[in-house]
Write a protein that binds this DNA or RNA. Structure first.
Length: 352
RNA sequence: UGGGCUGUCGCCAAGAGGUAAGGCACGGGACUUUGACUCCCGCAUUCCGCUGGUUCGAAUCCAGCCAGCCCAA
């Protein structure tokens, strides 16, 4: 076992949900001296603190409260708003994990003199030749490694992910057997800092405005005005309010304000270009064949990866549906997370 | 103000005497630690431009009117 685990002390991120509570339970059962940390990311999280406190009490561990509202707002929430206004689709979790959640958890652990940290994420880690890689969870349907791809080595080498080997249903059973209140907690979450799940209302409520423009139908005609760029994302169908006889999808969002629509099939892309990449080994993997995820809940898809003149490009073996600029593409090899980057544009049809 | 055509849910559109298909859009739900996708449910209960008439019974037949479009002037 990793030398850092020697003192058996560990700090666990505790949200009050079933996963993090079960994570603590498993670690305690394994002999760890566990302490918990509840991180308050936004005003919307205030309501969750009691659940975390209840869980800590039931689990018999001390709970540290970390207020991260200011950091989260500047690092995640505001960039989230700006990205939408730029006609792209942000993924707040991707930024929050390395910059706020795991960052503060590790910081707190250091402060407490605790070497290891843990969370209830469904993912695993594995060390090879001095590099710690994230690895997909045993439960492929719950795998959350995608969301963690930007975690730095300094975090990964301290990280323990007890749920990586478990199935979700199993986790809930464990929580029930341990009589944890969290066993009954619903695990469905949307954007954690957006209360009603209406992200557009949130962005606008914070005073942001995005370019207006028109929907452009597949035949090139103007199909009417839209509500503002921030209301849409590539691949979206519902909420367009455009009746063209058959389902229409957002094919492309132009920075000038126009939104190009396509019929079923036209939202697929042959490949993508990436920017601001992050790699486990500190440098991009060799050009070659890998698998890639362009969204969290998707099976890794075969692809060809190449870096040319500093620009990373991914060509899919089979067209992928609606990659959205702003979202992340994560590269895998045999279940290991090699890294990834943010999608800048879709390649309709192209070859290296 | 001569001739022709059309008028069914927000949009498109079946229907051609027997008691209002469908698609799109929309609403709700499920799924989901991002956005999406997907799936499920709902969506003109007397109403088919309006007013009368024929009929046991009409959106479907008849008459008049109104509205829009087209061609002539």
């Amino acid at each position: 076992m990793h030398s850092n685990f020697a003192d058996k002390k560990i700090l666990v991120g505790l949200s009050g949900g079933v996963d993090s509570a079960t994570c603590v339970h498993l670690l305690t059962a394994a002999g760890f001296a566990v302490e918990g940390a509840f991180i308050c990311f936004s005003p919307a999280h205030h309501a969750m603190q009691p659940a975390a406190e209840t869980a800590a009490k039931e689990l018999g561990i001390p709970l540290h409260i970390i207020n991260a509202e200011e950091l989260f707002d500047e690092t995640v929430a505001l960039p989230f708003c700006r990205t939408y206004c730029a006609g792209k689709t942000p993924n707040p979790c991707i930024l929050c994990n390395p910059l706020v959640k795991f960052n503060l958890l590790a910081q707190k652990a250091t402060e407490l003199g605790i070497a290891c940290i843990a969370t209830g994420h469904y993912a695993r880690t594995v060390t090879k030749k001095g590099t710690v890689y994230l690895r997909t969870a045993a439960s492929t349907s719950r795998d959350q490694s995608y969301m963690l791809y930007r975690l730095p080595q300094s975090i990964l080498e301290r990280l323990v992910l007890p749920l990586g080997e478990h199935e979700k249903s199993n986790v809930r059973h464990i929580a029930e057997a341990a009589a944890l209140s969290a066993a009954a907690a619903p695990d469905s979450q949307e954007i954690c800092f957006v209360p009603e799940g209406d992200y557009a209302a949130y962005v606008e409520g914070r005073g942001f405005k995005s370019p207006a423009g028109n929907f452009i139908a597949p035949n090139g005609t103007v199909a009417g005005p839209h509500k503002g760029l921030l209301h849409y994302t590539v691949g979206q169908r519902r909420g367009l309010g455009v009746a063209l006889g058959k389902p229409a999808f957002v094919k492309e969002i132009s920075p000038n304000g126009d939104i190009y629509l396509g019929f079923g099939g036209e939202e697929f892309a042959a490949g993508i270009e990436l920017e601001d990449t992050f790699w486990a080994e500190g440098k991009p993997p060799e050009n070659g064949t890998y698998t890639v995820k362009i969204r969290s809940m998707a099976a890794p898809a075969a692809c060809a990866f190449q870096v040319q003149n500093g620009k990373a490009t991914v060509l899919f073996a089979a067209p992928q549906r609606a990659p959205a600029p702003g979202q992340s593409a994560v590269l895998y090899s045999g279940g290991l997370v090699l890294g990834g980057g943010f999608i800048t544009k879709n390649i309709r049809t192209a070859h290296f």
